Amino acid sequence: MTYCVAMRLDAGLVFLSDSRTNAGVDAISTARKMTVFEEPGDRVMVLMTAGNLAISQSVRQILIEDHDEKRSLWTARDMFEAASIVGEAVRQVHRRDAHALRDAGIEFNVSLIFGGQVRGERVRLFNIYAAGNFVEATPENCYFQIGEAKYGKPIVDRIVHPSLPLAEGAKCALISMDSTLKSNISVGLPLDLLVYEADSLQVTRFVNIDERNAYFRMIRDTWGHRLRQVFGEIHNPEWDPAAPAEFSLARSGEADRWAQPVRARRVHPRKPD
């Protein structure tokens, strides 16, 4: 019941989350999936959650209410330590709730994206799993998705690279979200979009997007129209290998087993003697 995407770019970070938590026939509910931990001039951290809402809210509340002066998100020396603290909160909730959930036939299901910057180090981005372990974004894989990721993945795979400007990263994230909204009712508006400029150490840009947002409506209309336009411009398949075509679909002069489909043969019953 969620889609979240985040990108770690050379210029900073882009975070986008939806807010749908239930999508029954007559019961649609929402809850915001993004939480910001900010101390301007020292650190900015963003947490996005997917999975069981009770679990993710418990993890978030532990992090918010953590008053440990020696080890908390507010005192972490770097983003790696901060990601470890988030993972410890996940494991704390697992110790408390996993057995009862298992008895009720419910899986301990939560995943998180966590990223930001602590003064003195670079921007960093992590994907944190239900076991509390995590992986970090790299130049080769500079984005993460959680929740209903498959619908919005193709555009991100083709477009996102570390040198992408932040504005284009935000545009790509919104197109990815629109593709997901189009194909999956369990993801829904409003959206939270946060763009963080590296080394600013404060939230740079944030907007909550609902169905009245003019830019997102333009994205939806333009992307759908242009996809249909490009689709119409691509040549239809040419089946006759002898016909002149720049891109022939059929393979000429190949008589191997791949040139024919696998055929089932009808077996006639034996006649009794």
Score class of each variant (00 low, 15 high):
Tyr3Ile: 06
Cys4Ala: 13
Val5Ile: 15
Ala6Pro: 02
Ala6Val: 04
Arg8Tyr: 05
Asp18Pro: 00
Arg20Asp: 00
Asn22Gly: 01
Ala23Ser: 14
Asp26Leu: 04
Ala27Trp: 15
Ala27Arg: 13
Thr35Arg: 05
Phe37Gln: 03
Val46Asn: 03
Asn52Val: 06
Leu53Val: 15
Ser58Met: 13
Arg60Leu: 02
Arg60Lys: 12
Arg60Gly: 05
Leu63His: 04
Lys70Val: 13
Ala76Tyr: 03
Arg77Gln: 11
Glu81Asn: 05
Glu81Trp: 04
Ala83Glu: 06
Ala83Met: 03
Ala89Asn: 06
Gln92Ala: 13
Gln92Met: 13
Val110Lys: 04
Ser111Cys: 09
Glu121His: 09
Val123Asp: 06
Glu136Asn: 06
Gly152Phe: 03
Arg158Ala: 10
Ile159Glu: 07
Ser163His: 05
Ser163Pro: 00
Leu174His: 02
Ser179Asp: 15
Val207Asn: 07
Asp210Ser: 07
Glu211Arg: 10
Arg212Phe: 12
Ala214Asp: 12
Tyr215Ala: 09
Phe216Glu: 03
Leu227Asn: 13
Phe231Val: 11
Gly232His: 09
Ile234Arg: 08
Trp239Ala: 10
Asp240Ala: 05
Glu246Trp: 07
Ser248Trp: 00
Glu254Asp: 13
Ala259Glu: 13
Val262Met: 11
Arg263Val: 15
Ala264Asn: 14
Ala264Trp: 10
Arg266Tyr: 10
His268Lys: 12
